[in-house]
Simulated scan of single mutants.
Amino acid sequence: MRTTGRRRAVAPLAALAALLGAAGCEPQATGADGASGGPVRIEVTTTGPATTTGPATPPARPSARPSGPTGGTPAPQDAKPAAPPPPVLWSRGDSGRDVRELQARLRQVAWLYDGPTGTYDDLTERAVKGFQGKRGLPRTGRTDTVTWQRLLGMTREPGHWELYLMGGQPADAPDPRCLTGRVLCISKSSRTLRWMIDGRTVTTLPVRFGSEYTPTREGEFEVYWKSRHHHSTLYDAPMPYAMFFSGGQAVHYSSDFAARGYAGSSHGCVNVRDEEAIAEVFAQVRTGDKVVVHW
């Protein structure tokens, strides 16, 4: 029958719709004329029953920048530890032969004009700061290994008398003639004066001698005259704390020696640069005490 045939044709459609509905799909609605009212989205897998999804979601776009362990802003890199400062060799308050060499080398490059004294004082600290700043080093005023290497590369090994330009060098062993009695024991080789009593050194002072043309006499003498405020009429120069031992030659304080060191010389006298020290020796020395000038 025609009527029965139409019902049989409709039945499979209903079953298909029921199946699709049970599978979670959205069947398209059909109008009266059979036109589609909207798309049906079906997801079918090949390994199991068909499954369905809701409206398709566009895939997430990958981030343009790399991320840390889970994405996002890159993790900050660990900062490298700062390099430790170079070791300091000498600084203000230090003293000794090495400080003398530092000062002598600073004099060679015209950063220091006084000394060497062997003591790392404010003038030395200021000279080191100037040297460091000129070469782009930290202006600490302390002599570290980097500063010292730069200075070594610009200077030469200072000679003995450069190291002791302003005195302070070790005194030679006393001459045997100085070991008895009261003696001004004067060494030309170490440029020192020992004031000695019965073989014991009371005071040691740096001294300066005459030039090649006005040499200081060598030998054994005695103090024959003391003159506290003496003034030389021959050279029109002050000779305070003068202790005469041979003609016009005397041991006395010299302001020129105090200012210029061994860059100058006397006219034959034994010059002392430490006024306070020579004043004390002058007060102790007596007329008749021995004077020994030796190499």
Score class of each variant (00 low, 15 high):
Phe244Cys: 10
Phe245Thr: 01
Ser246Ile: 08
Ser246Val: 13
Ser246Glu: 15
Gly247Trp: 07
Gly247Arg: 04
Gly247Gln: 07
Gly248Arg: 02
Gly248Pro: 10
Gly248Leu: 06
Gln249Thr: 01
Gln249Cys: 03
Gln249Asp: 03
Ala250Gln: 11
Ala250Ser: 15
Val251Cys: 05
His252Glu: 11
His252Thr: 09
Tyr253Pro: 01
Tyr253Gly: 00
Tyr253Glu: 05
Tyr253Cys: 01
Tyr253Thr: 04
Ser254Thr: 12
Ser254Pro: 13
Ser254Glu: 14
Ser255Asn: 12
Ser255Lys: 14
Ser255Val: 06
Ser255Glu: 15
Ser255Trp: 15
Asp256Met: 09
Asp256Ala: 05
Phe257Met: 14
Phe257Glu: 13
Phe257Ser: 06
Ala258Pro: 12
Ala258Leu: 14
Arg260Ser: 14
Arg260Asp: 15
Arg260His: 12
Gly261Asp: 15
Gly261Glu: 15
Gly261Gln: 15
Tyr262Pro: 01
Tyr262Thr: 10
Ala263Pro: 02
Gly264Asp: 14
Gly264Asn: 11
Gly264Arg: 09
Ser265Asp: 12
Ser265Ala: 13
His267Asn: 08
His267Gly: 01
Gly268Gln: 05
Gly268His: 07
Gly268Pro: 03
Gly268Lys: 03
Gly268Arg: 05
Gly268Trp: 08
Cys269Met: 11
Asn271Thr: 04
Val272Lys: 03
Val272Glu: 04
Arg273Thr: 05
Arg273Trp: 14
Asp274Tyr: 11
Asp274Leu: 10
Asp274Cys: 09
Glu275Pro: 06
Glu275Cys: 09
Glu275Val: 13
Glu275Thr: 09
Ala277His: 02
Ala277Phe: 03
Ala277Asn: 02
Ile278Leu: 04
Ile278Met: 05
Ile278Arg: 00
Ile278Phe: 01
Glu280Asp: 07
Val281Phe: 00
Val281Pro: 01
Val281Trp: 00
Phe282Thr: 00
Phe282Asp: 00
Phe282Val: 01
Gln284Ile: 04
Gln284Gly: 06
Gln284Arg: 08
Val285Ile: 04
Arg286Trp: 05
Arg286Pro: 03
Arg286Glu: 08
Arg286Ala: 12
Thr287Ala: 06
Thr287Ile: 06
Thr287Gly: 14
Thr287Phe: 03
Gly288Thr: 07
Gly288His: 08
Gly288Cys: 13
